[in-house]
Design a protein around this nucleic acid. Sequence first.
DNA 1: TTTGATAGAACTAAAATGGTTACATCGAAA
DNA 2: TTTCGATGTAACCATTTTAGTTCTATCAAA
Lengths: 146, 146
Amino acid sequence: MKQISSRFSIAVHVLSLIAVSPDPEQCTGDILAGSVNTNPVIIRRISAMLKKAGLIEVRAGIGGAKLKVPPEEITLLTVFRAVDSASEGELFHFHENPNPACPVGRNIESILRAEMRAAQEAFEARLASVTIRQLMDGLKPHLLEA
Amino acid sequence: MKQISSRFSIAVHVLSLIAVSPDPEQCTGDILAGSVNTNPVIIRRISAMLKKAGLIEVRAGIGGAKLKVPPEEITLLTVFRAVDSASEGELFHFHENPNPACPVGRNIESILRAEMRAAQEAFEARLASVTIRQLMDGLKPHLLEA
DNA sequence: TTTGATAGAACTAAAATGGTTACATCGAAA
DNA sequence: TTTCGATGTAACCATTTTAGTTCTATCAAA
């Protein structure tokens, strides 16, 4: 299967980096790209999505970025929706136009859709239970090593 | 985002159809394709996966299919894994090689991976709580209408 | 042996993804 | 006011996944 794109893990990585950095100037696209180990344009594309979602503020010209929302208010679901929102926000793709002449084809859709929605909600609820702050706290002991 | 492929919804549709059909001969690829409203080859590809997973038995030559496992033992997770198993079974794709020279880059991976796994487990647990039998029961009142 | 079915290879088009180059623009500082 | 490092973004490319189609081989019962 096609996996959820790495934009999500990159976005969380980037937000964590911004969150733990004392100065915005330590969060230029090039520095972030260096930590993530990808091309700066990839970072700029993702930071554009985070900016559009109101999560960060990027300083044009001078460079650097900082959080616009406290890290305890940013959940993994917030991030997921900012960078990986599927069409209509639906994780599952339902096959088009089941045959209405078939009693199963006519009725399976609403029943199955409800179950798919429930699975997606369980998934999203778990993502919503974790904040960037919590990730930072998990990161802190490691940061002291450096 | 790229959604979970419609193979899953088609597979559930097909299994439900086989489950409610009294005779296997009413479950030929063409009939199933007609109810799903797609090409018979798509059905054959998916039924090959269901067969490989041991869920159904397809009668070569004579045609038709039937369940090899009672419908109350087939969960939506069983079906999902049979037709949509991601690489290594991972729903999320983690970005490759974060920079080990960066304290965040070095440590974010294991922390974030644990959260992604937890979200996937919540998702799978919900799928595992629903069986084909339950879908059949939801379908039955509608079948009487026909 | 005919017939209606499954099995599956080969090909196509469309879309998502990750990556790259190139260029316009911004804004502080020389 | 020019310079310089940064962001913003368009354009393009290769790869992969998906869904669909055509075609051929094979199967098994009548």
